[in-house]
């Protein structure tokens, strides 16, 4: 019994002593790095109408790194992207307020772990959607980067209105459905924009390579499910046939 007590005391003593030593030595890391970190800038998000939760790319707050246009990185902040508004939101840790970040300040943002995927990232790209509109800067999800790159703009279209009752009041709610826009971009910034990746649209992408595209589609039957890995393979393939 005595031996056990001595044993326990000795272990506690060693731990205590070493912890104290550690406290002293760890003071090197004690500098307030936060003070040197670049600050995210934005405004408090107070929408007049509630935003449809379905228009968020990620419904829950997810930690992410934000790459600023000045070259700095702000790491591990809770962020959410809304495709309808094309805005990135940050949940400020102290007040839990939702801040709509200044778009001009952001170059790209990475979700650290979005449903187990650590590769999801968005970049601000300049897009001219139609011949009559000016080009604008929009956050596009980066799917593949190479001689031909693929970005997806997570845009939404109105899917109808419905009357709902909230707090005893009736109001009209607009429903949205996602309408992704695929942007293929060459290294010289020439782009091919399409809302669909159907066989017809892919032929339009490279009319001279219809047979090759046909073979690719045959070999990669997706059954309508165009997941990220398929999109990457497709972009890589299109890049290869165009460069040949």
């Amino acid at each position: 019994m005595k031996a056990k007590i001595i044993f326990v005391y000795t272990i506690v003593l060693i731990f205590t002593f070493q912890s104290l030593q550690g406290q002293k030595s760890f003071s090197i890391d004690n500098i307030d790095i936060k003070s040197s970190e670049f600050c995210l800038t934005g405004e408090l998000f107070t929408p007049n109408q509630s935003i449809d939760g379905a228009t968020y790319f990620n419904s829950d707050w997810v930690p992410g790194d934000i790459y600023l246009s000045n070259g700095e990185v702000v790491r591990n902040k809770l962020i959410k992207y809304n495709g309808l508004l094309d805005e990135l939101f940050w949940q400020e840790s102290r007040s839990k307020n939702v801040i709509k970040l200044d778009k001009e300040a952001i170059m790209q943002f990475h979700f650290l772990n979005l449903n187990g995927d650590s590769t999801v990232h968005f970049r601000k790209i300049k897009v001219k959607r139609s011949t009559i509109s000016d080009s604008s800067e929009i956050f596009g999800q980066v799917i593949y980067e190479g001689s031909l790159s693929l970005f997806i703009l997570h845009t939404y279209k109105t899917a109808g209105n419905e009357l709902i009752r909230q707090n005893g009041n009736l109001f009209e709610k607009t429903n949205y459905s996602e309408e992704p826009i695929y942007i293929f971009r060459y290294t010289d910034n020439k782009t091919f924009i399409t809302k669909s990746l159907s066989r017809k649209r892919l032929y339009a992408f490279s009319p001279g390579n219809k047979n090759k595209i046909k073979e690719f589609i045959k070999a990669n039957k997706t059954g309508g499910n165009k997941d990220v890995s398929y999109l990457r393979r497709l972009t890589e393939f299109l890049g290869q046939i165009v460069n040949q």
């Binding site: 970190e37 600050c39 800038t41 934005g42 405004e43 408090l44 400020e92 307020n97 801040i99």
Partner: peptide
């Protein structure tokens, strides 16, 4: 002029 509540980092 920016007549809205802004955040600069954690500073409102």
């Amino acid at each position: 002029l920016l007549p809205v509540i802004r955040y600069y980092g954690e500073m409102p």
